[in-house]
Nucleic acid binder design. Sequence first.
DNA 1: CTTTCTGAGTTTACTTTTTCAACTCAGGTG
DNA 2: CACCTGAGTTGAAAAAGTAAACTCAGAAAG
Lengths: 163, 163
Amino acid sequence: METRRIDPVNCSVARALSVVGERWSLLIVREALDGASRFGEFQARLGIARNLLAARLDTLVAAGVMRRVPYQEPGDRQRFAYELTPQGQALRPTLVALLEWGDTYLADPQGPSVIVRHRPRDDGSPCDEPVRVVLECGAGHGHLAPEDVCRTPGPGARFIDAS
Amino acid sequence: METRRIDPVNCSVARALSVVGERWSLLIVREALDGASRFGEFQARLGIARNLLAARLDTLVAAGVMRRVPYQEPGDRQRFAYELTPQGQALRPTLVALLEWGDTYLADPQGPSVIVRHRPRDDGSPCDEPVRVVLECGAGHGHLAPEDVCRTPGPGARFIDAS
DNA sequence: CTTTCTGAGTTTACTTTTTCAACTCAGGTG
DNA sequence: CACCTGAGTTGAAAAAGTAAACTCAGAAAG
């Protein structure tokens, strides 16, 4: 008997990890989301080796996650900073999910070191409540438990045969 | 002038990545969420080297993400399978977030290969709608955009000084 | 009772990444 | 012109990943 399974290699998770799954990549994105933009800022905050940081920034720029933008400090020559593109900012939910998981299972005994909050808007509600990541279905059933979801083949699915 | 920043190393994202950030770890968890449990299943689905798979499974078991459970096929000796603990299943939102990101920015031209759906319950609504990951604040403001959130120090925060 | 088969790993030799430290480079300052 | 600074680059050593051969425990076949 042969069953057909979705090919696990042709998968957006694998493709996503090929871009941001290398060591340091997600931490660089995290620092960028937290405001870092210059080579030295990333280097100092993360303690990453300089050559690797250069390589990772190049990879992220090539992948469209970050963008190189020129800047010039007064009394200094022009240099380049790195900032997230919209594609890079779209990694925020992934990082919040990872943060939540880490907080729940690996937290510092004193509690989480970072809390993500609903940013108070100048022109509206100063909400400031902690933010959570939730799975929500298209029909509006929010807060699905992890076991309430299942994977099904999409239009780009490839299949492999297994005995 | 000195500003104080949250220490980026004392962070649940960094701790989470130290457990599941190694190459293959999240893909192993993904396969486990999709039903893989035996050494050979992971190996065949992912094409990972056997020694690395053994090492990764050990790491994941040691971290509490997976559990080694004995099983015995009829007419065969006892062997061990690997299944996710609740802690491991809690990585589902992270993987769905990564999947969504990959689908949005790196998808196969034919479309996503996997769609995550609200599992039809036997005893209730056969919903089956696609599932999304959303950021939601504690006050019930759902569907926050990535830029609507900000990071603030939590109870376990350490600070570092920067000039 | 010896041989063979199978899934689950280990071992080993080889290649690639990561790390650390030292060096370069372009411009501005003293 | 010597020197400083941020932003990298280079190169050697250490760590991690890969592929393939090997081991191991028990069941089954002869």
